[in-house]
Write a protein that binds this DNA or RNA. Structure first.
Lengths: 328, 328
DNA sequence: TTGTATGCGTTATCAC
DNA sequence: GTGATAACGCATACAA
């Protein structure tokens, strides 16, 4: 592999001049520039990244912590993050935590060892107390989640409202016995939605039975299980609020298996408006989240923080304009 | 941030000794080792990655080229790749080509600029002629695809067979007018499946009408479109072979919309056995590919190539044992 | 406008 | 068993 010295030698110039051409510096004569360009082409020269990084202390790489790649919600989120990253010349290092706190802490070392310029968290598996030590040595942005005590930038929607409008929708359809599903792990947004659910129920003077809470429902198969559990209840709920369209799909599938009519016997409301929501019959009523946009905003936020670090004087014009778009 | 020199200074030793401790070298007295370890802890020292990379010429990072993260097939593939990568201390740089040839060529520069140790291709957007220049400067593994003229390692299943058994299944169910769907881009595996389709049809003495070929069907919405097109045909096919469960799902949805019974009026066979295949009603008959295992094998292959480069003498024990598991 | 010299943080090769 | 030193490839302050 050719180095900058090889190019300099072939062009009959110094390494600095080559470097200047490489980085589009002004004050380089056209003549020398051409000489350098030709030499680079001749040698098929590509600047060595690690050397550049070591020198500049910038990796142009962002780590994205994701619980599970195969969860469609997160792949759409990642897609949004990637869109903005690519546009701005950033690379993405994918870190699957697999809901594992230790893995998460492990990945934080990427920041310590300067392998990435920043970290975007799309889930949080540890208490913020255990994390905050890492967050101090580089920009961390939390995306679609939040943690008690975390004082880092944060992009997310009003999930209390999401839980509220979903539940209200069911109540207005005439339901009184409404169950509530969410994933198992400690999640700020799940708690918020639960708050919204309770808020709506209270507002309409409805009391919640403890048996209506299903707090370990994260995917399609969980949904099926929940439906079977509900089926066996003496007085079963007539509607369910779920934290994801996957769970909703599972419930609907199993309901049909059990000979129930959806939504007459059991009404289901999903979350996120993922493709699956319109693929099954009947289609799932769902709360749309602009997942892609959330991802984009998180990355934009990250970039603006990085730019600000480099040039603390000029504030970058950042426009965060997320809104809840509900389509029940 | 503390450097190795800071640690050396605090421990009252030389950088070399610190480095030796860091890399678990033998011939370091327990006494000094303890001294170093304590100093490292005291200073919260983390070795700088780029410096290490610059020195060692190894990034421990693999780039994975993927057309679209939101395509479930690829997220499962990526998940498989990630599993083995993580187990072996490798990082993954995700490169979404978005089916764009130029983006793909752009990403190949990662290898040239030594930002990654190797590249795993899960799709190919350029002719191999345009790519081969890049493939020469580092290990490239093709995963679940192949390209004419490419002489690089390759992990994939027998897609001719896949096309064959799928079509044969439909024929044995009594179908004679069988349509064929595949994605639009140049793909070796799509061509192979088509070959298998033709092979089965010929074997049973059936002739194929040109109108039965749908060569731009890649996702759910394409499936819906294809179904509408078929619906308008004078003599429409009674069965369809599709290249993905997404397309199959679209066809089934639209068929039901149009008042057709599945599979009585129109039988559909999918590919990959993705979650969606069992989520809809009726469930999709599909050809299972062990996607996760394919990804794992590709990464294992990559690692074995890298190891061999480092130590050309000792051949690593690589066990590639992919088999076609059909569950129609 | 161009060249010289230095340092980014490590590791490997020598000496001792 | 330990330490000094060079080198990895590049970018920049400074000198010319």
């Amino acid at each position: 592999m050719a180095t900058i010295s090889d190019v300099a030698k072939l062009a009959g110039l110094s390494r600095s001049t080559v470097s200047r051409v490489l980085n589009n510096y002004p004050h380089v004569s056209e003549e020398k520039k051409k000489l350098v360009t030709e030499a680079m082409k001749e040698l098929e020269y590509y600047p060595n990244s690690s050397a550049r990084i070591l020198r500049s202390q910038k990796t142009n790489t962002i780590a994205v912590f994701i619980p599970m790649l195969t969860n469609p919600f997160f792949s759409y989120l990642l897609e949004g993050i990637d869109t903005v990253a690519t546009e701005n010349g950033f690379r993405l290092l994918v870190c699957q935590t697999r809901y594992n706190p230790e893995k998460e802490l492990q990945y934080f070392k990427l920041l310590k060892s300067k392998q990435v310029d920043g970290i975007i968290l799309t889930s949080i598996e540890n208490s913020w107390n255990d994390i905050k030590g890492y967050a101090s040595c580089g920009p961390v942005v939390i995306c679609n989640e939040y943690a008690a005590g975390a004082n880092v930038p944060n992009v997310r929607l009003d999930q209390v409202y999401g839980g509220y409008i979903g539940t209200r929708h069911l109540i207005e359809k005439g339901h009184r016995r409404i169950a509530y599903c969410r994933g198992s792990f400690q999640s700020g947004i799940a708690k918020d939605r639960e708050k919204g659910y309770q808020q709506a129920m209270t507002e309409y003077g409805l009391t919640i039975e403890e048996g209506w809470y299903f707090r370990t429902a994260a995917d399609y198969h969980d949904g099926k299980r929940v439906m079977r559990q509900m089926f066996d209840m003496r007085e079963r709920p007539t509607a369910v609020f779920t934290g994801s369209d996957q769970v909703a799909a599972g419930i609907i599938f199993e309901a049909k298996q059990l000979g129930l009519n959806v939504p007459q016997d059991i009404a289901v409301i999903g979350f996120d408006d993922q493709p699956i929501a319109e693929m099954i019959v009947p289609q799932i009523t769902t709360i749309r989240q602009p997942v892609h946009e959330i991802g984009e905003s998180a990355m934009r936020l990250m970039i603006s923080i990085i730019l600000e670090r480099e040039a603390p004087d000029k504030k970058p014009p950042l426009g965060l304009d997320l809104i809840v778009r509900a389509s029940t």
